[in-house]
Amino acid sequence: MPDLLEVKNVTKKFGGVVANQGVSFSFESEKVIGLIGPNGAGKSTLFNMVSAIFPPTEGEIWFAGKRIDRLPAFKVSPLGIARTFQNLQVFKRMTVLENVMVGLHTSTSSGILSAAFKLPKAKKEEETIYQQAWEEIEFVGLEDVAAVEAGNLPLGKLRLLELARALATRPKLLLLDEIAAGLNHQETAGMSDLIFKVRDRGVSIFVVEHDMDLVMRVSDRIIVLDQGEKIAEGTSKEVQNDPRVIEAYLGNDEEKEEGTV
């Protein structure tokens, strides 16, 4: 059985800037893997490649035994990868429920003509979409704002909405891109509980996070990036005691991080 996600020697260059250099790692199903590193370490770039927003310059990415690094993003989603966005990409002019319903797009198939003529298949699918979207809304606890246009929601609710929408795609692998950014303590605690609940559904989770408390608590294993390269990988304890990680975070020079290890 192949690993769920395999990143093989991936390099990404933007013009002359090397964002990732020779990064390799892999992980198996039903785990929570953390990805940390100082600002500019290349975490977001790596995330964008795994979710096929853009392809790597070199190297390969495999998901569930299938090479995905040359696929367009919309073809990766049906394979079982979903993500949230650090800089919130909600559909602002749609209601919360409708946002989540978009997440069910690929699990349904009726086309534009059956939609136009309201054929029985489209109607039946619409019912399924509605029911399943509600389940996700309830899972993250957004029932009371389900009918609100997403653009009117506060940040905390939007993060939950992105989670619900990603879950609606029925992912095997969920990428959480700084899901706790901007949340208060209570909200962050709620989010880490949710992450465990998601894992218990059998979903593997890949977490990029600046909130060290959160990432240490939820992750089975942590990968550390610095200046585009992987410098450490291990349990939270191993990583915290790794001299290279300490150096990357605390540094010899002035490039200090606000987060503490």
Partner: peptide
């Protein structure tokens, strides 16, 4: 970007 990552 979000809609394509939802598989649209």
């Amino acid at each position: 970007v979000a809609s394509s990552s939802m598989g649209v």
